[in-house]
Write a protein that binds this DNA or RNA. Structure first.
Length: 266
DNA sequence: AGTAGGACCTGGTGGC
DNA sequence: TGCCACCAGGTCCTAC
């Protein structure tokens, strides 16, 4: 999403802001948000975990979290308005950046990029799993200090950034690890497999432009493709691609969880 | 440190 | 068709 948008909106100036759903903006209050965004030029777009950051001239950064159902759409004003559009940023070339979000779990923030006045939303976030700094060794050291089941730890953004329910289930499956395994009981070889699987899943999913079940789309409203590559997620009852055993659904850490009971033994 | 449960929202789906 | 229960890509909170 960030790469797509970078080529389209960097250099554009935000001429007007329309926010029919005020609670979307967490900080500052909506009037200040609007007055600090209006007239600013987008100089870059970055990503940290599940947050996207639109750097503005003047030193502010407009931060977006899509929540569960949010999408950023780049449209022309004459194109029909989608349902559930929570904010519209009108750009100086006439286009509109629309944030569509059925369930209203998405959030926006306007922060000083320096993070001085207020900590950035990702201030306490763990390492980026696709960065070289995220090594199997460092990952192993983190997990060795934890006794919780591995799945909720992988969903915890302070342990590793950016993983959600889909990619956690997929990574655990690829690594042949049961989601209820206690982190500190994982053998070194298992941590290495998991470390590799996390990177593989994320790279594959990004290459396939994301996973769409109902709401997620790219900036042109196109669905992702990775839902066709999932090995376990949302495949309850279907045959495991590796061994043919029916995929099972269980609840771990309060989240729907999908495993092959044969490939992923407790 | 961990776990369970619920809150926040708006649907879609399947059973009866 | 209606009603109901349950499910859903995330995060945050409280209580234990």
């Amino acid at each position: 999403m960030v790469r797509d948008l970078a080529g389209r909106v960097v250099g554009r100036t935000i001429s007007e802001v329309d926010a029919p759903f005020a609670p979307l903006v967490v900080y500052p209050d909506l009037p200040e948000f609007v007055s600090r965004v209006r007239g600013r030029t987008i100089t870059a777009i970055s990503r940290r975990g599940k947050y996207a950051g639109f750097a503005l001239d003047g030193g502010d950064i407009l931060v977006v979290h899509r929540g569960m159902t949010g999408s950023l759409l780049l449209r022309q004003p004459n194109e029909e308005m989608e349902s559930h559009v929570r904010i519209i940023l009108r750009l100086d070339d006439g286009s509109e950046l629309r944030f569509r979000d059925q369930r209203k779990f998405g959030k926006m923030y306007l922060m000083q990029a320096s993070g001085e006045e207020r900590p950035l939303p990702w201030a306490r976030m763990g390492p980026e799993p696709l960065n070289a700094a995220f090594t199997a060794r460092a990952f192993a050291e983190t997990l060795a200090r934890r006794t919780a089941p591995i799945k909720p730890l992988l969903l915890n953004q302070q342990i590793v950034a950016g993983l959600g329910n889909i990619y956690v289930d997929e990574a655990l499956h690829r690594a042949r690890i049961h989601p209820q395994r206690r982190a500190n009981t994982l053998a070194s070889a298992e941590v290495k497999r998991l470390h590799r699987a996390i990177g593989d899943v994320l790279r594959d999913a990004v290459e396939r432009r994301g996973t769409t079940f109902s709401n997620y789309t790219d900036f042109e409203g196109r669905a992702g493709l990775y839902q066709d590559n999932l090995l376990v997620f949302h495949r309850t009852g279907s045959a495991c691609v590796t061994c043919g055993t029916p995929i099972e659904r269980l609840v771990v850490g309060g989240r729907g969880t999908h495993i092959c009971p044969r490939c992923q033994r407790i």
